[in-house]
Computed example of a mutant assay.
Amino acid sequence: MDMDQRKQWNENHKTLTNIILKPHHHKNAVNLFLNQHSLLHSFQMSDLGIHTLEDELVKDINEETLRRYPVAAPDTKNSIAWHLWHVTRIEDMTMNVLINNDKQVFYFGNWDKKLRIDYSHSGNEMTDDEIADLSDHIDIPALFAYRIEVGRKTREIVSSLKPGDFKLKVEAERIHKLKEQHAVKDEASWLLEYWSKKNIAGLILMPATRHIFVHLNKSIRIKHRIQKM
């Protein structure tokens, strides 16, 4: 995605924001979401053959660049690997537990073992040592495979929603389920409180789209800075 395409993504996100709570626009909202979402994962996730923002990130990237921590960027010092893992964990939790009341892909697909790390939470409020450890040891091919599986599951979930569902509030027992799963660190309990105040539309407009867009853009800036060194 070039800069013009990213600007168009932002414009489309504004349109999605304007129509997502209108039941008579439900089909259009779902289709627009699927288009926006497909641009935030690799082309392999949706099989649409579209060059995506993630494709732009991984083009000509090497493992050292993915793992480097800390990085010299104005808005983050976290590794690209951390950013990819963080947005995928957030998407997995919010879509599969808070919206679909189901198991996380992380556990259902044994990704807790395949990723070869000891962290199952969202990544918020991690210490420097924890981020360095994750950046050094996460299995990179497994990380990209996990992203694909989470992305495909998200599309199934959103495609199954009915008109009016976007207005539904996040249910308290689902927040409690994430708490029981230690989905966020104790220091990041504010995140569960934040999600508890959202409806399904709010989760679609942030964790499943805007949140990923922001972190991929950060990661692309990190990549460019490293490559210039």
Rank of each mutant, 00 (worst) to 15 (best):
N217V: 09
I90D: 01
L84V: 13
P70E: 12
D4I: 07
H224Q: 15
D55E: 08
S79V: 11
H24I: 07
D2I: 06
I212K: 05
H86S: 05
V150M: 11
K185I: 00
H41Y: 15
K162N: 12
K7W: 08
W9Q: 12
E130V: 05
K197G: 14
R155C: 14
G123K: 02
D128I: 10
I157T: 13
L161C: 08
Y107H: 09
L57E: 07
K153A: 09
R210G: 00
N101C: 08
S189Q: 10
S196Q: 12
Q227K: 15
N124S: 05
I80N: 03
T52M: 06
Q227D: 13
M45F: 06
A132N: 09
T127A: 11
R221F: 08
R147W: 01
E173N: 05
V170H: 01
S189M: 07
I61K: 03
A208Y: 06
A145R: 07
L192A: 12
H51C: 03
I220N: 00
L66R: 01
R152G: 07
M206D: 15
W9F: 15
I200M: 11
D139G: 06
A201S: 14
L48G: 13
D102M: 00
L98A: 00
L48C: 11
I140A: 08
N28H: 06
H26V: 05
I117Q: 05
H26P: 09
R6D: 04
S219E: 03
G164H: 10
P70N: 13
T65G: 09
S160F: 01
H41F: 15
D118C: 02
R67G: 13
R68S: 12
D136G: 11
Y107E: 14
K14C: 05
H37E: 14
N78H: 08
G49N: 11
H26T: 08
V58F: 13
D133E: 12
G123Y: 01
L168D: 11
Y194P: 03
I212H: 02
E156Y: 04
H211N: 14
R6F: 10
T65A: 14
I140R: 01
N199W: 03
Q227E: 15
I140N: 07
M229F: 05
S160H: 03
E187Y: 00
E173I: 02
N18I: 00
E64N: 10
D165Q: 03
H25E: 14
N31P: 10
K198W: 08
